[in-house]
């Protein structure tokens, strides 16, 4: 069944705000999380935001094979080094 992104996003974000944040680098593969905060350097944070990885974005960790992981934002996959992912704080939504 289709739902609008507004309904979908609101439910997920409400759930997520009630849990403690963790680092994206430690999130196991398969988990869906919402981005709580970007603690990266301004340059890296700007790049991540321009790619769509921003606070309140819901993403899914596809693989997490240290020291790198792949996450999926909507239908875009992004490969990140753990040095970047450790500065992305996320909360579980499932």
């Amino acid at each position: 069944m289709l739902c609008t992104s507004r309904q979908h996003g609101d439910v997920i974000r409400k759930k997520a705000m009630s849990t403690n944040p963790e680092r994206l680098s430690t999130t196991p593969a398969g988990r869906r999380v919402v981005v709580r905060k970007l603690q990266s350097s301004p340059q890296t944070a700007m790049r991540l935001r321009e790619l769509g990885l921003r606070e309140s974005t819901v993403l899914r960790v596809v693989t997490n094979d240290a020291p790198q992981l792949i996450c999926e934002l909507r239908h875009t996959r992004i490969g990140l080094h753990h040095r970047v992912a450790k500065d992305v704080l996320v909360s579980d939504v499932e």
């Binding site: 890296t44 790049r47 991540l48 790198q68 996959r77 490969g79 040095r83 970047v84």
Partner: peptide, 10 residues
């Protein structure tokens, strides 16, 4: 080097 961020196409 800048941090590794790379888009992976479908």
């Amino acid at each position: 080097s800048p941090e590794f961020i790379l888009e992976l196409p479908p």
